[in-house]
C-alpha cells in the first residue's frame, strides 16, 4: 500500500500573488510596472532632450489645444523644454532616489535592529533610544535643517532620504529577531557551536525577509512623498535637473497661464504613490495571512 501525500504544485511566487489579487491590486501592479518601465527606458522613449531649451517654443500647450507645437505632446515649459521628456526623466530620478533612500534605510535600520536584537544590554538600549528620538521629531524639520546646512546636492538628498525611515526597520527587525531567537532551532545552532555572526546571517536573517519586504514597499511611498515635498519646496535636487516634485514646484509660478507644467508631474506622483501604497498594503495583508495560518 502506498501513501500519497499531496504536494502542492510549485508555481512562481509572482504568479500566485497575481492570482490572489483583486482588480484594484492588479491595476496597481500594472501601473507600477508601467511606471518602472517608463523610468528605466526614459532616455530611449523621451522624444526630446529634457534639458534642451528653445526660445521660440516656450509655454506651448499640450496636444489638442490652440498654439500646440507638433511633437511636444504634453506642452513645453517656460524655457521651451518638453514637459513629457522632463516628466519621464523626473520619474526616473524620483524612483531612483526613493529606491536608494529606502535601501540605505533598510541597511542602516536592519543592521542596527539585528544588532540590538542579538546583543541586548546597553547597545540595545542606545539603539532603541535613538529610534524613539527619531520617532519623536517630525522628520521634515530635520530634513530642512540638513539640506540648508549641507547644501542640496544629490548625495545629501540620498542621505536625507536614507535616514528618513531607518527607525521602522530597526524596530521591526529587533522585534522579529527577539521572537525568532526564542525558537528551538536557534538554540540548536548555538549548541552545535554556531557563532553570533553565523547565526545572525544564516538562521535569523532569512526568517525576517518577508516583514522587511513589506516595510520596504510601504516606506518607498513615504520616501517618494518626502522627496517630492522637499524638491517641491526648492530644497531638493537643484535645477536644471528635475524630479517630479521640483517640476511641480517650479511650475507653480506659471500655473495661471501654463497649468500643464504642473499637471503632468503631479499626476505621475499620484500614480507612483498610489500604486506603491496599494502594493505595500496588499503584501502586508498577504504576510499577515501567512502568519495567521502558521
Amino acid at each position: 500500500m502506498t501513501v500519497t501525500t499531496h504536494i502542492p504544485s510549485r508555481t512562481s511566487l509572482p504568479l500566485t500573488l497575481w492570482r490572489d489579487s483583486n482588480v484594484i491590486q492588479k491595476a496597481a501592479a500594472l501601473i507600477g510596472l508601467a511606471l518602472v518601465l517608463m523610468a528605466l527606458l526614459a532616455p530611449l522613449i523621451a522624444p526630446f532632450d529634457p534639458l534642451a531649451q528653445s526660445l521660440i517654443s516656450r509655454l506651448r500647450p499640450p496636444l489638442g489645444f490652440e498654439r500646440y507645437k507638433d511633437g511636444f505632446y504634453l506642452g513645453t515649459d517656460e524655457l521651451g523644454r518638453d514637459v513629457l521628456s522632463r516628466s519621464l526623466h523626473g520619474l526616473q530620478l524620483t524612483l531612483g532616489l526613493a529606491l536608494a533612500g529606502a535601501t540605505i534605510g533598510l541597511l542602516i535600520g536592519g543592521t542596527l535592529g539585528l544588532f540590538a536584537g542579538l546583543r541586548r544590554g546597553w547597545a540595545e538600549d542606545a539603539i532603541m533610544a535613538a529610534v524613539d528620538l527619531q520617532i519623536a521629531v517630525p522628520f521634515t524639520l530635520l530634513a530642512l535643517l540638513i539640506l540648508a546646512l549641507f547644501g542640496s546636492s544629490l548625495t545629501v538628498m540620498i542621505c536625507v532620504l536614507g535616514i528618513a525611515g531607518w527607525e521602522q526597520y530597526a524596530r521591526i527587525v529587533r522585534a522579529e529577531v527577539r521572537k525568532i531567537t526564542e525558537l528551538p532551532f536557534i538554540e540548536a545552532a548555538r549548541a552545535s557551536g554556531g557563532g553570533q555572526r553565523y547565526i545572525a546571517l544564516t538562521h535569523v536573517l532569512p526568517n525576517i525577509v518577508s516583514p522587511l519586504v513589506v516595510q520596504f514597499t510601504l516606506s518607498l511611498s513615504n520616501i517618494v512623498i518626502l522627496e517630492s515635498t522637499l524638491s517641491f519646496l526648492g530644497l531638493g535636487v537643484q535645477p536644471p535637473t528635475a524630479t517630479l516634485g521640483s517640476m511641480v514646484g517650479y511650475g507653480r509660478d506659471y500655473m495661471p497661464t501654463a497649468p500643464w507644467m504642473v499637471i503632468a508631474p503631479a499626476v505621475l506622483i499620484i500614480l507612483v504613490t498610489f500604486s506603491v501604497q496599494i502594493l505595500g498594503d496588499w503584501l502586508r495583508d498577504r504576510a499577515d495571512v501567512r502568519l495567521r495560518d502558521r
Partner: peptide, 18 residues
C-alpha cells in the same frame, strides 16, 4: 482614507489652487 494617505499635501494644494 487611502486617497488622503497616498496623495502628498502639496499635490492636493496645487490642484485646489488650479
Amino acid at each position: 482614507a487611502f486617497i488622503g494617505y497616498a496623495v502628498p499635501n502639496f499635490v492636493i494644494a496645487t490642484f485646489m489652487v488650479l
